[in-house]
């Protein structure tokens, strides 16, 4: 299977160019910092509220804060590892010996996509899994619908990576980075516009925010993930959590839209790369 040959090559590149090791060490640093902070917040002089519900609410907020940062890091990492992939090999000419072999260009893209999807799964597992386990060990708390939440965070990184590959099939590495971060930023801002709009009950602002999510559904996936991982009881308390799902929660439809968006980006990457001159 030539697709798997390319996927393996992508893994090996991450290992050989010390991308995987660097990400792993800094990921451990991230977890260490989080654990320290969590410990000191948990054992502060006044302590956490003792009532179970209020206690869980604070813990959930702390976990969501950590996952929010991890989710952001995974998104950035998805851009960084994949932006140079096609663009860099096209630029250097290293792609020439690969695509002149009996392999379709779409298979090259698919192989890379699979490789990056594997790498990002490990990264999300390290950061997200590390955070959830830390909180479970320190405070005995596990969020609801963990699988759904983790799946949505992972979907976000795959989405960002697919969009990056699409740009990378046409643009240079730097232009790809600029384009994807631009879209990521629009989605981020759009998420906040939607939240503030919902708080102020301003429908126009909400619509603008949702439109931004249609342009790039990454932020919406995070808010859906936070929604899933916060129990209905906690949500019913109505405390505003800046790292959580917010007031206006993306519907399941938005999740399907994001899946289609990622697949469309992958299809676009395959098509553009297959048709361009190298």
């Amino acid at each position: 299977m030539r697709i798997l040959v390319i996927a393996k090559l992508t893994f090996r590149e991450a290992a050989r160019r010390k991308i995987a090791l660097t990400a792993f060490i800094l990921g451990l640093g991230f977890l260490l910092l989080y654990n320290l902070a969590f410990y000191f917040v948990r054992t502060q002089p006044y302590g956490l509220p003792s009532a179970a519900l209020a206690h869980n609410e604070v813990i959930n907020l702390l976990l969501m804060a950590g996952l929010y940062a991890a989710n952001f890091m995974a998104g950035v990492m998805a851009v960084l590892v994949s932006a140079d992939s096609l663009a860099g090999e096209i630029g250097s000419g290293a792609i020439h010996t690969v695509v002149t072999k009996p392999i379709r260009r779409s298979e090259v893209v698919l192989g890379k996509w699979l490789g990056f999807a594997g790498l990002m799964a490990l990264y999300v597992l390290l950061l997200g899994g590390g955070l959830v386990i830390s909180v479970a060990l320190q405070a005995g708390y596990t969020p609801t619908n963990l699988a759904a939440g983790a799946g949505l965070i992972y979907l976000e990184t795959v989405l960002v990576m697919s969009v990056t590959l699409a740009f990378s099939s046409r643009l240079s590495t730097l232009a790809t980075g600029a384009a994807v971060f631009g879209m990521y930023g629009i989605a981020f801002l759009g998420g906040w516009v939607e939240q503030i709009g919902a708080l102020l009950q301003n429908q126009t602002a909400v619509d603008i925010g949702v439109s931004a999510s249609l342009l790039m559904p990454s932020e919406a996936l995070w808010r859906r993930a936070a929604f899933e991982m916060t129990s209905p009881l906690l949500r019913s308390l109505g405390t505003f959590n800046p790292f959580g799902s917010g007031v206006s929660v993306p519907s399941p439809l938005m999740v399907y839209y994001a899946i289609l968006f990622a697949l469309a980006a992958l299809a676009l990457a395959m098509r553009v790369f297959a048709r361009r001159d190298l």
Partner: peptide, 20 residues
């Protein structure tokens, strides 16, 4: 695609995956 399996190609400039 299939015919490329019978061909060999040494490109100009010799740029390859140099971490292999």
């Amino acid at each position: 695609v299939a015919t490329r399996g019978k061909a060999g190609f040494l490109p100009e400039h010799f740029r390859f995956h140099d971490w292999l």
